[in-house]
Design a protein around this nucleic acid. Structure first.
Lengths: 154, 154
DNA sequence: TTTTCGCTGGGCAATCTGCATAGCGGTGCG
DNA sequence: CGCACCGCTATGCAGATTGCCCAGCGAAAA
């Protein structure tokens, strides 16, 4: 899948995203063309989706995060999806196995504001029930490097 | 917090991360120095955390995602945190209110492999119970642009 | 009114990019 | 064994971009 060099390249880019291809090639001790080729390949394969800016919702004024488990009326899945995707505070949505049918990540301006967001979310026929867990701490923020390391060292 | 120009800049960078400051200034119809200054400010404020590569776990050989709700023995929180952070397949971890005490996102190489990951996760004294929901579909992948739009248009 | 601040528009040297070249060594195949 | 293929190295070059600087200007704040 990916080899050590790919892994090191991804780690390097994760640590210092501002560096260019040339600087990366120096750090890795390989030719510039090699880094260029690896990067192109990683992006073509979809391993690297892109280099979009990582925006912190808290800094945007949405310091409260919560996860909501939703129970959906049978056959309403598609409509619920499009309803939820129209709510900006819904940062992601998954359909899952288990007791709930969907799991979504929400943000809000405050705990009070979270009520407004949840109301907006459940204000839809297809949603039978929602149970919400507010995030208190985030000991492990979304990360990928440890996995990249493991995958590249196989 | 952030104004329209900031919002447009973030949207632009999200759509086409490869463009530089100069090109961005052309697209936005402002001077290069302005874009430079806005970017610096957004990063200094923490609104933009960085431009790390977005890696797709599926392309790395981990196509299965799951969310696990963990129940923790009182007073064992800190140890559990460090235990979980040492597991590469744990992509993020939150402590939450509600029935569970923690919620974590896992990935695995297959449904069968997920068992191994879960075993590794719960192989720790402090964890009383784990209930797992496997992700089937991801109708709304992690996104931030709608929120940026809303925040910048206030 | 004066000061401060953000934006503009320009300039400059140093750097990087995209693209192309050629050589080299390892691998798979007939 | 000989050959073609592929990835990596190394290098070159023109054009674009970056980081940094400055002076002017208009609006908002003091």
């Amino acid at each position: 899948m990916i080899d050590r060099l790919d892994g090191r390249l991804i780690e390097l880019l994760a640590e210092e995203p501002r560096i260019g291809v040339l600087e990366a090639s120096r750090r890795l001790g390989v030719a510039r063309g090699t880094v260029q080729a690896r990067l192109d390949r990683l992006q073509a394969q979809g391993v690297i989706r892109g280099f979009g800016p990582e925006v912190d919702p808290a800094a945007l004024g949405y310091p409260v995060t919560a996860f909501a488990t939703l129970e959906i009326k049978q056959g309403q899945g598609a409509d619920v999806r499009s309803h939820l995707s129209s709510v900006p505070e819904v940062l992601e949505l998954h359909t899952t196995t288990g007791h709930g049918d969907m799991l979504c990540r929400l943000v809000a301006r405050s705990n009070a504001d979270l009520q407004r967001v949840i109301d907006k979310v459940v204000a839809y026929d297809g949603i039978v029930r929602a149970s919400t867990a507010i995030v208190m701490e985030n000991p492990v923020p979304l990360r990928i490097i440890p996995l990249v390391k493991q995958a590249s060292e196989d």
